[in-house]
């Protein structure tokens, strides 16, 4: 299978700090790839390199190749179009202080879509895709800030979907949510991977085991192990991976 992202020899310096060391990974399409590891291991930093959110921080120096469908995202693409193709969902639900409809329509509008009919269609599809349509269809004009935390997070997923990406990056998308909302998001991920490629950072090992196809274990900026999820959780090759997933540290 042709990989979606092909990352090779990626090094990232944050000022003096060497945050990612020679990271090489290929991320396959229509799969959920989980990135796990203790806090500060570089998994979130790595995630952000995939859609160049690191550009917004100062003092970040990147070296190496990140290819999306064979094109180097740092050399052959611009950040704006890249981010429209590679959507992102954040740790804290962060809807804009606008109506539910306006939140979802924001991405398509950025891309110049003005037709009301077209926008309505995109918004509905995105909200359906994020399994929140039934809950909000009667209050599309109401402020998004009135939704519960779990609904807000699904709205943020819908907002990302509406921009028409083919990859979704999720940075601990359930860490701020209650168990019921969490399971809804997890179900959603399994559903979404039919159409999208998902890369998810998670703190929760069970979550990684439940929903991901492939898992990468990060430690101190390095990828220690990257393999099939089932295999990694049943018989890890590296001692450090085993220690981490059995809860001996981290």
């Amino acid at each position: 299978m042709e990989s979606k992202f092909e990352v090779s020899k990626l090094n990232l310096h944050y000022g003096q700090f060497h945050a990612l060391k020679d990271v090489s990974l290929s991320i396959l399409p229509h799969e959920v790839t989980a990135l796990i590891g203790p806090s500060g291991c570089g998994k979130s930093t790595f995630l952000k390199t995939l859609n160049r959110m690191n550009d917004l921080e100062e003092g970040v120096v990147i070296d190496g190749d990140v290819l999306l469908d064979g094109k180097d995202v740092y050399k052959e693409m611009d950040a704006i179009s890249l981010r429209q193709r590679v959507g992102m969902v954040f740790q804290q639900p962060n809807p804009f202080p606008k109506s539910i409809y306006e939140n979802v329509a924001y991405g398509p509008k950025l891309q110049g879509i003005r037709s009301k009919v077209k926008l309505d269609e995109i918004v509905e599809n995105a909200l359906r895709g994020a399994a929140i349509w039934d809950e909000v269809k009667d209050r599309l004009k109401k402020s998004a800030l009135g939704l519960s935390g779990g609904q807000q997070q699904r709205l943020c997923i819908a907002r990302a979907l509406a921009a028409g990406p083919d990859v979704l990056l999720m940075d601990e998308p359930t860490s701020a949510l209650d168990p019921i909302s969490t399971s809804k998001i997890e179900e959603l991920c399994t559903e979404l991977k039919k159409d999208y490629t998902i890369v998810m950072v998670t703190h929760n090992m069970q979550q990684a085991a439940r929903i991901s196809d492939r898992t990468a274990f990060f430690l101190l900026g390095e990828v220690i192990e990257y393999s099939d999820t089932d295999q990694m959780f049943s018989m890890p090759k590296d001692k450090r991976t085993e220690d981490y997933i059995t809860g001996r540290f981290g």
């Binding site: 917004l56 981010r83 429209q84 962060n94 950025l110 907002r159 921009a163």
Partner: peptide, 14 residues
């Protein structure tokens, strides 16, 4: 809140 900015940049806004 910075979250608003991150979300918008994440969707490909200039």
């Amino acid at each position: 809140p910075n979250d608003y900015r991150k979300a918008a940049y994440g969707l490909g806004a200039t």
